[in-house]
Design a protein around this nucleic acid. Structure first.
Lengths: 133, 133
DNA sequence: TTCGAGTATTCGATTCTTCGAATATCCTAG
DNA sequence: CTAGGATATTCGAAGAATCGAATACTCGAA
């Protein structure tokens, strides 16, 4: 149930992660705070573009900065979230292939649990009870 | 280091998550396998659109299906990944505000560790050693 | 075989994203 | 105050994503 309530907000958050340059920026910030000039050296992108991506990350509340003279030191303002997302997206889980039988078992399990607390729309009986195997 | 190697691939993966309807679909599939018709009842979207989003999720290797007669039963083919991403994006970490002092400490730490294994480009000396506080 | 239910794909139109160039803003040293 | 470095914002063009409508495909029952 965590997501079901505000999928739009969650989508917004994840969208902020979904760009190669922004991921690279976040990656760099995991290593430690950096100013825009530092990032210019580290990334294959122009200053203006980096600033634009930083603006996106700021709006998503993934980064913030502390002004140090003329320089802005960017840092992760939700470091746990960023590290965990990067870690998760980086590791690759093996893809599973499921059989019709397994799936029908799942459907039966789900049907049973719905019987107990019948919140359903009482529409047609959710096909799948018995499949023509 | 997990991400640094293929930020584009990671961005692609995360982009597949970054849409309210697709998140809702994944959410439903966490509860159990479903066919397109089931999803039509559960989501505020047309059949064609749901199929389009399922195609995106399939290309990202987040879902797959098993054909059961004329029906296609969709399921998560990397359930762990999906559950973990949904969970992560759902919980909200408090936003931290960092002070200039903390940041400079971090920078010094980073500088030290770079001294030990000097892999840097030998460019200008990465500003921040001493900031004009 | 034909039909119909279930699902996928194609096609445009609309909207969003991204980028570089140009420009504006902010800050500090002189 | 003024210049110059650092960063942000605006603008316009190019490309990508999204959606509904229409259409195509596929399977099993009759």
């Amino acid at each position: 149930m965590p997501v079901s309530l505000e999928p739009r907000a969650v989508a917004e958050l994840l969208k902020a992660f979904s760009h190669a340059t922004r991921l690279a920026i976040l990656q760099e910030l995991v290593a430690g705070p950096k100013c825009v000039t530092d990032m210019e050296e580290l990334l294959p992108a122009r200053q203006a573009n980096i600033s634009q991506h930083l603006a996106v990350l700021r709006h998503a509340r993934l980064v913030d900065y502390s002004q140090d003279g003329a320089v802005r030191c960017y840092y992760l303002c939700r470091p746990r979230l960023v590290r965990d997302v990067l870690e998760l997206a980086g590791r690759d889980e093996p893809v599973v292939k499921r059989t019709a039988e397994e799936i029908n078992l799942d459907k039966e399990r789900l049907a049973k649990s719905l019987e107990r607390k019948p919140r359903s729309k009482a529409g047609k009986p959710t096909r799948g009870g018995k499949a023509s195997i």
